[in-house]
Design a protein around this nucleic acid. Sequence first.
DNA 1: TTGTAATTAATACATATGTATGTTAACATT
DNA 2: AATGTTAACATACATATGTATTAATTACAA
Lengths: 224, 224
Amino acid sequence: MAGNAQEKILSFIREYLDKHQTPPTLREIQEHCGFSAIGTIQYHLKNLAHGGFIEVKPRLSRGITLTNRTTGIPIIGTVPAGPAQLAFEQVEGYISALHEEMKPAPRTASAGSPRSSSSTTSLATPPNPAFDPRGLFALRVKGDSMIDAGILDGDLVIVRPQSSAKNGDIVVARLAQEEATVKRLVRKPGVIHLAPENPKYRPIPVDENTEIIGKVIRVVRHYS
Amino acid sequence: MAGNAQEKILSFIREYLDKHQTPPTLREIQEHCGFSAIGTIQYHLKNLAHGGFIEVKPRLSRGITLTNRTTGIPIIGTVPAGPAQLAFEQVEGYISALHEEMKPAPRTASAGSPRSSSSTTSLATPPNPAFDPRGLFALRVKGDSMIDAGILDGDLVIVRPQSSAKNGDIVVARLAQEEATVKRLVRKPGVIHLAPENPKYRPIPVDENTEIIGKVIRVVRHYS
DNA sequence: TTGTAATTAATACATATGTATGTTAACATT
DNA sequence: AATGTTAACATACATATGTATTAATTACAA
């Protein structure tokens, strides 16, 4: 697999932006990514731009900007797949990692829209968890099972993927074949279950069919 | 009052960043702010940097970055004053307008820390509502009166200042001498009141002592 | 007025930075 | 082997962009 250099460069640009608030120059990329020629950077930037990961404004110094696809954390409607392999086919859209616009995202084109036959190599493929800032993703909450914890239907929870959690943490878990749910993890001696925060529902025992996908670290709600 | 040019320039930088994701050059500032000499921009940037509103990285093209003070929207603990004159003495800190870090902000130094006797003019004064992106501010919620609306103690509500609101809107209002509260505005024929979302509390009639400060447009909660 | 500081202007300069072009090596495809 | 594509390298070049310096203008106080 090629594309290694592309990932490296893209990561560096993101780091640089994080740190300096302004995009790097070609030569900075060159140096920090360990290339001995600036032409190499030109080459990869062209491909990254082609792949829709960045935009390069011609003639402008520091004219690289990251696209939503690169910057954003994906909003996922449902999480039926395994933990690492999140359902990126189901990406509703992206929100800025900085939460710039956390409005209900318009349904985006399916991730399968290929640009395949072009001359660009690698990375011009569906989004990859390794790409968003810290692997975060956002999940739109359905239902009222966490209403007493102040998490309402339609809210957006931001999730850090992790396979275990502490007592009291609010987690995203996947039950058997079902979609993911948001619940509070309760660990007592001899008991581990996922507790809804709504008397209408009952706790769900954690067994081998239950999988913790991540921990809810933030809740965001928008009023029109 | 001088500082007019400074405000103009600062606003332009913010707009430019919004639009281009990268800071403007001195000459772009010059042109768009209507100055005929680049030296003027140098002059004002120096002062803006001195005042703590921007940082300018020497020798770097497009090396201007906005500081939190400029970028952020203020987190206000209490709002005792009038609507326009929000209590900026009470600023807890700033959060990125992009909500970059909406963690409970550490108490910041009092706004009164002066840099007065320096040669820098104007604008090196306390923050000004006109400065944050769209006049937004954030308020940390105290109490449980809106618990049934999913707004919990400690949550951060983001408020757009406005003096009236529609039926059903969640608003920030100031009652007589008291601090501001978050309530739902209820308009029925003949009745206008501020309704808590917790059976423990009673609706508050809206009279001439009640003032609507703004509308809650977002709620953000952080789990440690 | 007179003087001093604040602000704007004019201009020359150094260099930071993107662009264009050609070369080479590795590797797959025919 | 011949051919083409990818990836990396080398280098020369144009210009975009910050810097330095000095002067002209305006504002304002004594």
